[in-house]
Simulated assay, not measured.
Amino acid sequence: MAPGYAENPLQRLIRERLRERGWSYGEVARRGGLPRSTVYTLATTRNLVRPPRPATIDALARGLDVPVSAVRAVAAESTGLHYYDEAQAGPDQAGNRERELLIASIDELSPEDRRHVAALVESLRNRSSGRPADR
């Protein structure tokens, strides 16, 4: 990557998943049912004018093995749209990625699983503040 080149969030997601899984553009395309050229274009286009079509987002999510909502969020952000205030996330990029994944994934959980996650978060917050957890 050229010095001074800033990846957009969609490019970063694709690059990180390729690195984590050892996949190629072709592998992601095959897994998602997309043309390789589409994956390559999304991974290399710095200035997206508009997000990819919903069917492309769905297929890319399958190919990358990530929640559709995560791809939807980074695709929108790559065009200048934001779903939440990033200033609250802080400078830690790994923490930002985890935060994005948590936010994007919540809608894909069942109501029961959301209750479990909420209880876990409340327990962790109580533990870090020193307050006893409600039983």
Results as ranks from 00 to 15, higher is better:
A104Y: 12
I103Y: 15
V121R: 11
G80F: 09
G63C: 05
S110Y: 10
S123M: 13
L42N: 01
G4V: 07
D92M: 06
L60D: 00
G80N: 05
R127P: 05
L64K: 02
A2I: 08
P51K: 05
R72P: 00
P54K: 03
V121K: 07
R15V: 03
A104V: 10
R72A: 06
I57T: 04
V68R: 15
N8F: 06
L13C: 07
L109S: 10
E27N: 05
R12V: 00
G80A: 08
E7Q: 12
G130H: 08
A94K: 14
G4E: 04
T79D: 04
A119Y: 10
T79F: 09
E86W: 06
S24G: 06
A118P: 06
G32M: 03
L120A: 15
A55W: 01
A6F: 07
V117A: 11
A55G: 12
S24P: 08
L48Y: 01
D85P: 04
D65T: 04
E20L: 15
R12P: 02
L101F: 12
S128E: 13
G63N: 02
G32T: 04
P9Y: 03
R125P: 08
P35H: 08
G95L: 11
G4K: 05
H82P: 00
N96K: 15
A73W: 04
E20M: 10
A87Q: 11
L10H: 01
V71S: 03
A119S: 13
E108A: 15
N47G: 05
R21C: 10
R53L: 00
Q93S: 14
E100R: 14
S37T: 10
V66Q: 02
E108H: 12
I14D: 03
L124S: 13
R115M: 13
N126V: 06
P3V: 09
V117F: 08
E122L: 13
S37Y: 05
S128P: 03
I103K: 12
E112T: 13
R135W: 11
R135C: 12
S123R: 14
E100S: 11
L13R: 02
P111E: 07
S128I: 10
R97T: 10
G33T: 00
L60A: 01
S129L: 13
L102P: 01
P52W: 01
I106S: 09
Y25M: 04
I57W: 00
A61G: 03
S105N: 06
D85R: 13
L48F: 03
R19G: 11
G95K: 04
A133D: 14
E100I: 08
A73K: 07
Y5W: 10
Q88R: 14
R114Q: 15
T79M: 07
A76R: 07
V117I: 14
R99E: 07
S78P: 00
R62C: 09
V66H: 04
H82D: 09
V68L: 12
L34W: 03
I103G: 11
R72F: 02
L48S: 02
E100L: 15
S24W: 13
A104I: 11
S105W: 10
V66R: 03
S129E: 14
W23V: 01
G26T: 09
